[in-house]
């Protein structure tokens, strides 16, 4: 579902950057020459090297974990099991965060608890299983484990606050 990423803004930014580069290239070609020669391309090559596997993995998640299946599955469970499934599925589902909101609204209509729906959004936004390979590669195992271990309690706390205060529009309560 990454293909639902809206890229209109990105295209505009890219066009502006291109214009700036072309304009400054005319003024000082040496600057770019030096820059391109001295640049360490290893991190860029690494991103591109991981990209094919990553995109296929996201495709696999999307095709074999259709939204309908996830929603029906989540609706059935409550208590600890429901919370666990909400978190797990939130972190597996690929795609940008704004797709999680209509998804969570549908979950609420299916009588999934507000706590679990908020947990689903929290997991979707903070921990993406498929993308962790990039965190491991670029920031290291220590950073990855620390960040996840520290983030999860706060995701739970946020969901708890939201569900205790019933912070959702009335039609979904």
């Amino acid at each position: 579902m990454i293909h639902k990423t809206k890229n209109k803004h990105h295209k505009i930014i890219l066009a502006i950057i291109t214009i700036i580069i072309v304009a400054t290239l005319a003024i000082s070609p040496e600057f770019y020459e030096n820059m391109l020669v001295s640049t360490d391309y290893s991190s860029i090559i690494l991103i591109l090297a991981y990209l094919p596997g990553f995109l296929i993995l996201m495709g696999l998640f999307e095709v074999w974990l259709p939204q309908k299946f996830v929603m029906n599955h989540l609706g059935k469970h409550s208590g600890f099991k429901g919370a666990f499934y909400s978190f797990a599925l939130g972190s597996i589902m690929p795609g940008p965060l704004y797709l999680a909101f209509p998804f969570a609204a549908t979950l609420l209509r299916k009588k999934v608890s507000l706590f679990n729906a908020a947990l689903f959004i929290g997991a979707w936004s903070s921990l993406k299983i498929g993308e962790e390979i990039f965190e491991l590669q670029f920031l290291g195992l220590k950073f990855l484990l620390l960040r996840i271990a520290i983030t999860i309690p706060f995701v739970i706390l946020t969901s708890y606050i939201i569900s205790r205060a019933h912070l959702v529009r009335e039609s979904l309560r």
């Binding site: 990454i2 293909h3 639902k4 990423t5 890229n7 990105h10 295209k11 930014i13 890219l14 990209l51 094919p52 995109l55 296929i56 996201m58 495709g59 696999l60 999307e62 095709v63």
Partner: peptide, 16 residues
């Protein structure tokens, strides 16, 4: 479908 989805994702994120 997986391949199509991956190709569309690449197209969507290419500018970024």
């Amino acid at each position: 479908e997986v391949i199509i989805s991956a190709a569309r994702s690449l197209k969507a994120i290419a500018p970024l």
